[in-house]
Computed example of a mutant assay.
Amino acid sequence: MKPSASTPEIAAPCSELATAVRVARTLLADYGDATGYDLFQYAQAHGGLSEALRILLQALDAEPVSTIVDTPRCPAAHPEDPTPCNGPVVVTVLDSSNAGADGCEHHAVRLLASLTGGRPVPKPDAPAGLAVRLFRAAHSTRPFPWREGL
Rank of each mutant, 00 (worst) to 15 (best):
E63V: 15
S96Y: 00
A45W: 04
P79T: 00
A113R: 13
P84I: 01
E63L: 15
S15N: 01
A128P: 10
P13D: 14
H46M: 12
P143A: 03
E16T: 02
R142D: 11
P3T: 02
Q41C: 02
K123V: 01
R142P: 08
P75V: 09
N86A: 01
L60G: 12
R133Q: 12
I68S: 11
F135P: 00
P72K: 11
V90Q: 04
D30H: 12
R25M: 13
A45P: 05
G118L: 04
P122Q: 05
G87N: 05
V91G: 00
S4C: 08
A131Y: 13
A5C: 12
T35L: 12
P122C: 06
Y37M: 06
L134V: 03
P122S: 04
F135A: 12
G32M: 14
Q58N: 15
S4K: 13
L115N: 00
T67K: 10
V69G: 13
T83N: 08
V89M: 09
A126N: 10
Y31M: 05
A128V: 06
V121W: 02
P13Y: 10
V121T: 12
P88I: 02
G118W: 09
R73N: 02
Q58C: 15
L28Q: 10
S96R: 04
A18M: 08
V91K: 00
I68L: 14
H107K: 08
I10H: 14
C74P: 11
S6M: 01
Y31T: 03
L28T: 15
G87L: 02
A62F: 05
P84Y: 04
L94P: 04
L28F: 14
T141A: 06
E16S: 08
S66G: 12
Q44N: 10
S140Y: 11
G129C: 14
A20W: 07
F144Q: 05
R142C: 09
D61W: 05
A62M: 10
G103A: 07
L17Q: 02
L27M: 14
L134I: 02
C74H: 11
G117W: 01
M1N: 05
G118V: 09
P79H: 00
A77I: 00
A20P: 11
V89N: 07
H107L: 06
L150C: 13
A24M: 15
R119E: 09
A101D: 00
D125Y: 11
M1E: 08
A99G: 08
H106Y: 02
T141V: 06
T116D: 15
S50D: 06
P127C: 07
R136I: 01
D61C: 08
V90M: 07
D95V: 00
L27I: 14
A29S: 04
L27D: 15
P145Q: 07
G103K: 07
D30V: 11
P64M: 11
T71I: 15
D81R: 14
P120N: 05
R25Y: 01
Y42M: 07
G103M: 07
A137L: 15
T83D: 08
P8R: 06
G118H: 03
A29H: 10
P79W: 02
P143T: 02
R142A: 13
E9W: 09
A59E: 00
E105H: 01
A137M: 14
E148K: 04
